[in-house]
Design a binder for these strands. Sequence first.
DNA 1: GACGCATATCGTTGATCTACGATAAGAAAA
DNA 2: TTTTCTTATCGTAGATCAACGATATGCGTC
Lengths: 112, 112
Amino acid sequence: MDKRPANSKTKCCGEEVTLALTQDASAEQLAKLTWAIAHPARVRIVQLLLSRTSCVCGEIVDQMPLAQSTVSQHLKILKESGLVKGEIDGPRICYCINQKMLKQLKRLVADL
Amino acid sequence: MDKRPANSKTKCCGEEVTLALTQDASAEQLAKLTWAIAHPARVRIVQLLLSRTSCVCGEIVDQMPLAQSTVSQHLKILKESGLVKGEIDGPRICYCINQKMLKQLKRLVADL
DNA sequence: GACGCATATCGTTGATCTACGATAAGAAAA
DNA sequence: TTTTCTTATCGTAGATCAACGATATGCGTC
């Protein structure tokens, strides 16, 4: 009746569990980062920020068919994921890609 | 009053638009694929399918702390994204990664 | 044909997203 | 200090997600 293959719950107290835990950690992180760009508008924002060498402020809004508040909301999500950083520059705010995080995302996806 | 930079709506009838359109297309596709794995459970499923050389059926359910119906729902999402394929094998169904799609996802992310 | 197993689908509930307009907050300029 | 500009936040409405249990479906087996 028990036709489980080699790597199943039977040895749930050995390396299995450790492996599962690290998998979960990276799964969680990958899910978090991919979720950040799991919307066309946010992909677009990231592409925009990458296309310019330096940071950009609310021109992003001009480039998108969305209300300013909506863009701000998307930026918040990107910031919370760590993919994007924002720096205050006088009255406006400059956004730029967090290359470190982008690299991590790329690595996590590539390692799939 | 008009302080737009070089690449703005002013030349909205030239190459600008074409570029924007292709950007949108890839943005859309990238958003779709990343959204498919934008959940820990779905990342876990993908990792599981990749860890085995061949397809797997409902053992996935055993490996996850989720109800069968929930897992099935996640599988449906993965199938709809194209990242996963399912083949009927007698009474059960074998799932496997669609390598082509996974490659596309990797390329899209790497090209960011 | 009736049963058992594996999987999908339905229906529901609560949470979260997405989008917007309106408004607040902060800094420079008048 | 008041105004203006830029950005964030609030409040809201509708849509979608995530999870579950219950049920339907489809295929082998008795």
